[in-house]
Design a protein around this nucleic acid. Structure first.
Length: 479
RNA sequence: GGUCCCAUCGUCUAAUGGUUAGGACAUCACCCUUUCACGGUGGUAAUAUGGGUUCGAAUCCCGUUGGGAUCACCA
């Protein structure tokens, strides 16, 4: 049987990393076995709907190349793929479930959740609906008379429910723990509890992958499958992605959303690679994976049970690996928007890219790495003193005075030539290379550390600006 | 509170009864070096806890502790 999985987000705002990881696992379970991956929009809660969030979902999946085989935009044989467009289907199946004894009409008012007065002593009890004792004919008459109603699940079963989960193994839950929850709301739309069962069955979903918060309600869904005479899917419950040991990653608190990370200069492929490893491992020491490689080696058996904390530091490292692997031209092209944002001076940008590529971990680092190119910062003369380089203020004064005329005569302003010239200058004056190069770098950057050395910075700045900065430094040194 | 689930270095994880408990990130030291970075070498660092079972337990069982989830006309 062909494997079919679905990503079924609700359009309620941003796409966070946990969502994306669930989508990835769904995608990989299908694609590792040549199956289908479909996209379904679960918009049955009109109150929580956020304009534009379906576009975010489409765009995110597209940028990481997780292509779906069926979905709202491209259609398929099991549509529609937006739940609000499936309203008649749910009503039909809900009524059928009532006839089958798996549900009943309920006329109770909605629960008011506002009284949080004595929360300490509030012990919730299982909701057992009195309406299920209303004779079906009477209930139907009230519905026909226009009385508002919901359809609730009927749970009369006693004892213990068993089911198997691919990650957590065999789970047992007592039927007494199950609520007789609403399946079809007053507004005629289904709740998640009903819609996901009906749709997953109708759409031929073989593997249901979702957060482990659904484990405790899974027996309820199985009861519905059972009442209809349907075969339940294979369940794959995955642990949450955490912000820290206590808190899940959430949209509130400004926690990492995919698009935030991209905006900060993280590469989509690196993000995807990192989250694949948050809760899954290949069983080898390999850590860098393309999506195609993941498709080849992914197996649900190697999914983890315990929550994983999202570690931006490791993601940053991995992003650095991806940046270093970029072809030079590609890196330059991707860095260009950042250059345009932070730099106005006429610089040797290809040289800047060459210097930056092995040094930055995200494109967002460019700003801090290049600020001195734009404007010479204020700096202390103490910077000229460096024990290891055997320089101090006096030596700097002397060597910069030698460097200035030497560079004035240079016509080939390439890094290689500048380095060669200055090495020769050092040798001719019986100086160490560092005694020439270290003060020069300070004079050009005003910073203790920089991306690149003296001659690289000179190359980037160009001859005119380089000479100007050396003159300024000599002035500052009182030479 | 009931129920369910989880527990290996700071973090992500490997080891499905026998390993000096392995790898990666981070961190520290050293090497390379025109600073920084990249790269290389090495170090520090973990089986929450108490009982069992077993010749032998990170691994199996029970208790404890800690954490998470769930108990909506949200998903």
């Amino acid at each position: 049987m062909k494997v079919r999985t679905r990503f079924a987000p609700s359009p309620t705002g941003y796409m966070h990393i946990g969502n994306l990881r669930t989508a990835l696992y769904e995608y990989l379970i299908a694609k590792s076995q040549g199956g289908d991956f479909l996209l379904r929009i679960e918009d049955t809660d009109q109150k929580r709907y956020v304009e534009g969030s379906t576009d975010i979902i489409y765009n995110t999946l597209k940028t990481v190349h997780m292509d779906w085989d069926e979905g709202p935009d491209i259609g398929g044989n099991y549509g529609p793929y937006v739940q609000s467009e499936r309203r008649p289907i749910y009503k039909e199946y809900a009524q059928k479930l009532v006839e089958l004894g798996g549900a009943h009409y309920c006329f109770c008012a909605a629960h008011d959740d506002e009284d949080d007065g004595d929360d300490e002593n509030k012990i919730p009890t299982k909701f057992k609906d009195p309406c299920k004792r209303i004779p079906l004919e009477e209930a139907k008459a009230r519905v026909a008379a226009g009385e508002p109603y919901t359809i609730r699940q009927t749970i009369n079963k006693k004892g213990v429910s068993h089911f198997h989960d691919e990650v957590y193994g065999d789970i047992e839950i007592d039927y007494d723990e199950l609520d007789e929850g609403v399946l079809l709301k007053t507004d005629g739309l289904p709740t998640y509890n009903f819609a996901n069962v009906v749709d997953d069955h109708l759409m031929g979903i073989t593997h249901v992958v979702r957060g482990n918060e659904y484990i405790s309600s899974t027996p309820k869904y199985n009861l519905i499958y059972e009442a209809f005479g349907w075969t339940p899917p294979i369940y794959v419950h995955v642990p949450p992605v955490m912000k820290d040991a206590q808190h899940k990653l959430s949209k509130r608190n400004g926690d990492a959303s995919f698009q935030d990370l991209v905006a900060k200069g993280y590469l989509p492929d690196a993000i995807l690679n990192y989250i694949a490893l948050l809760g899954w491992n290949p069983g080898t020491d390999q850590e860098i994976f393309s999506l195609d490689e993941l498709k080849k080696c992914f197996t649900a058996e190697r999914l983890n049970k315990s929550p994983a904390i999202f570690d931006i530091v490791k993601l940053t490292w991995m992003n650095g690996c991806y940046i270093r692997e970029l072809p030079t031209e590609k890196f330059h092209e991707m860095a260009m928007p950042y250059y345009q944002k932070y730099l106005t001076r006429d610089l040797n940008l290809p040289m800047l890219s060459k210097v930056l590529q092995p040094r930055i971990e995200t494109f967002g680092d460019i700003e801090a790495q290049t600020d001195f190119l734009e404007k010479m910062p204020e700096y202390s003369l103490e910077l000229y003193t460096n024990k290891k380089m055997k320089t101090d203020i006096d030596i700097a004064k002397k060597t910069l005075a030698l460097t200035l005329p030497a560079l004035q005569n240079v016509s080939d302003w390439s890094n290689e030539n500048l380095f060669e010239q200055l090495k020769n200058l050092a040798a001719a004056n019986e100086l160490k290379n560092g005694q020439i190069l270290y003060p020069l770098r300070i004079a050009l950057s005003g910073k203790e550390t920089t991306s690149g050395g003296a001659t690289e910075i000179a190359t980037i700045l160009g001859k005119e600006e380089t000479l100007r900065r050396i003159q300024q430094a000599l002035q500052k040194l009182g030479a």
